[in-house]
Computed example of a mutant assay.
Amino acid sequence: MPDWIDACHVDDIETEEVIRFDHADRTYAIYHAPDDAFYCTSGLCTHEDVHLADGLVMDFEIECPKHSAVFDYRSGEVLSPPACINLKTYPTKIEDGRVWVNLR
């Protein structure tokens, strides 16, 4: 698998929103932060494998749609239970208006 994967166009994600990105049988979540940066985490809540792309983004946090666990999507850190395992995070970069994610 190549190091950097073309995930989406920057315009595909509104500010303070999240989209689902599937690649190689895995699910990821890509976020457009209020500071105009882009972030990527594993796409499933660590509590019960619910898709985070269906959750609520507020500032730099994602709230799981099922049991309301909250994570800081910049670091993957759990901020509120019931989740107790941090999300895995992945580096992103912007080139030619595209969001690239390093999934290694």
Rank of each mutant, 00 (worst) to 15 (best):
E14M: 02
T27E: 11
V101D: 06
N86R: 14
P82I: 10
V99I: 15
P91N: 02
H51C: 04
D96L: 13
D49A: 10
T15S: 09
W4C: 09
G97P: 07
D49Q: 11
E16P: 09
S80H: 15
P34I: 03
K88G: 14
M1N: 09
C40N: 01
D3E: 06
M58P: 02
H67G: 03
F71S: 03
R74G: 07
Y90I: 01
D12T: 02
V78Y: 10
D96E: 13
R74N: 03
K88Y: 02
I94A: 12
A29E: 04
M1F: 12
H9N: 04
L79S: 06
P81S: 13
V50E: 04
I19T: 03
A83D: 10
T89A: 01
M58N: 06
F21I: 07
I13V: 08
P82W: 14
C40E: 02
A53I: 00
H67S: 07
T89M: 05
S80M: 04
F60L: 05
E63A: 09
C64K: 02
E95Q: 12
D6K: 12
G76Q: 05
D22E: 11
C64G: 04
Y73M: 07
D49T: 13
L56H: 11
S75P: 06
L103P: 09
D49L: 10
V78K: 15
I30K: 03
G76C: 13
N86Y: 01
P2S: 12
V101L: 13
T92D: 02
E63T: 08
